[in-house]
Amino acid sequence: MEFLSYLISGLSLGSVYAIIALGYTMVYGIAKMLNFAHGDVIMVGGYISYIAVSYMGLPGWVSVIAAMVVCTVLGVLIEGLAYKPLRAATSLAVLITAIGVSYFLQNSALLIWGANFKTYPSVISGTLNLFDNRLSIPYVSMLTVVVCIVIMVGLTLFTSKTKMGKAMRACSEDKGAAQLMGINVNRTISVTFAIGSALAAIAGVLLCSSFPILKPTTGSMPGIKAFTAAVFGGIGSIPGAFLGGLLLGVIESFAKAYISTQLANTVVFAVLIIVLLVRPAGLLGKYVPEKV
């Protein structure tokens, strides 16, 4: 029974990682950049929904929408102001800029909301008790897993069935050829950031609902873990990000339970290193040799 309970909390944590990783992987797939500020957009999403609920007394679901709207705008602004001017720059310049944006967001949050942590009110409370109360599953865990699956299926359908989704895949393969088809590459990249950031807002709400401590650095560690999950599953791959996120959450949960809380992160990153040694492109990533 304990095993089941660790598995469920691992799946729930993993679902949050997966939602963040989906944003990472889409942006990487299309813009070919690692948006290290992605984790901090999660934090902003957390604060926005916190304000909506605690100060404005709005219902939980409204706070989610508010967080999504603000984060979408934020994501598009970040892309347009910080990354777009660097389209022709080296990837190192883009990476350093992304780290800069990450610090900018964290310090802005510090300035606006202060260093003291806020206790986040979960969007959904209560637990489902099973087997004479020997197994209790928080509703928020179930919600998190369901939301993650819905997002993953939605994104898969979006990229395989819609015109915009297919245009994104075309941009991800060859931006020049995509332009020759009449696809506006800049707009496609903006839309990708919008989607990724809206997902980050959802992840922020779900993360803070499970771990109710909200501070300016709340998004950092989950951001890094989700990035790891995306690489683990195969960066650029939507099912890869999903699988990578879930596995990472479960491994972390079991490592905490059966090995040591302190060593959990060490175990997680050790597994990542081993996987990458065996499969350099990640679990579901395709190794595509550079074509000449």
């Binding site: 297919k166 245009a167 393969e173 088809m181």
Partner: peptide
């Protein structure tokens, strides 16, 4: 050629009709 290697033949053709 620069066709979209990972997309299907039909999806490539659809991209041609993007505009």
């Amino acid at each position: 050629r620069r066709i979209f290697q990972q997309m299907t033949v039909e999806e490539n053709i659809e991209m041609g009709a993007f505009t």
